[in-house]
């Protein structure tokens, strides 16, 4: 450091100092960084447990310096439920992509949200199966060309894209739902605030918290990182609008209070 200067930003210590395997410009690594910044700010590194999915983020345990558990494809929500029930004082999050959470693991997701399990979902939605080569996912946009829908997704054949954040915000026991993105520095700061809020609500025991990240996939979309940001703004945001979908009201009691009342 030069003399007369002070350090104002550096890589979070909880993020292991290794090179991540993600493609250049991928939001997975941005979200890893934000997660670890939040863990450091809240000083919960020794009591946070993450659950990895199957997908590009399958090696997240190599990069996050916290306790991690690998789950079978789509079953991260079920594994996180077990961890949180056995160790209720820990902060548990599941980190899942759209093929994992919205396709093969849809049942686990829906039922974990319906039961109001007190952990946080980090849902990375990039509209395709990125790891396996860009196949069509449930969240692929209408008309989007992928390797398994070369003429574009046709709603009469393939249905419409699933809006997961809107779906889970319908459940009574879900406390907090927000859709964020990392396409600009401002949106990245908002994403960090959303993750922090979700962890704080989880510590208060308010119920399930769900953060959907409208993400990019430069390799899967076959464009440069810069073009992927423009594509995100033009096509993803109109269908997946950013913002808070559900927030706990101050008057309403959390799930912990509701459960003890019925017992």
């Amino acid at each position: 450091m030069k003399e007369g200067y002070e350090l104002i930003y550096k890589r979070p210590k909880a993020l292991v100092d290794v090179r991540m395997h993600y493609c250049p410009g991928c939001f997975h690594s941005t979200i890893h960084k934000l997660l670890m910044e939040v863990v450091e700010e809240l000083d919960i590194q020794d009591k946070t447990i993450g659950v990895c999915p199957v997908g590009c983020s399958v090696f997240a345990y190599d990069y996050l310096d916290i306790d991690m558990q690998e789950a079978a494809h789509g079953r991260a929500a079920a594994v996180a439920t077990g961890i949180k029930r056995m160790l209720p004082d820990r902060i548990v999050f599941s980190y899942q992509g759209d093929g994992d959470l919205a396709a093969i693991g849809l049942a686990e997701t829906i039922h974990a949200c319906n039961r109001g399990e007190n952990f946080t979902f980090i849902f990375i939605n990039n509209g395709i199966y990125g790891m396996t080569g860009g196949q069509m996912a449930p969240t692929t946009l209408e008309g989007q060309e992928t390797t398994t829908s070369p003429y574009g997704r046709a709603p009469d054949k393939d249905g419409m894209p699933l809006k997961m954040a809107e779906i889970v915000s319908q459940f009574e026991m879900v406390a907090y739902v927000e859709r964020v993105s990392c396409d600009t520095p401002a949106n990245t700061r908002k994403a960090k605030r959303a993750i922090r809020k979700a962890f704080e609500f989880q510590m208060k025991g308010l119920g399930t918290t769900f953060i959907e990240v409208a993400s990019n996939c430069p390799s899967g979309w076959k464009c440069t990182p810069e073009e992927s940001l423009n594509w995100l703004k033009e096509h993803m945001f109109p269908y997946y609008p950013l913002g808070v979908l559900k927030e706990p009201s101050k008057k309403k009691k959390g799930n912990a209070a509701r459960r003890t009342k019925t017992e």
Partner: peptide
Amino acid sequence: CSVICPDAAITVYKKV
């Protein structure tokens, strides 16, 4: 730059 950087490669210093 440091907020948007996906690989957390940037360290920022400010003049006092």
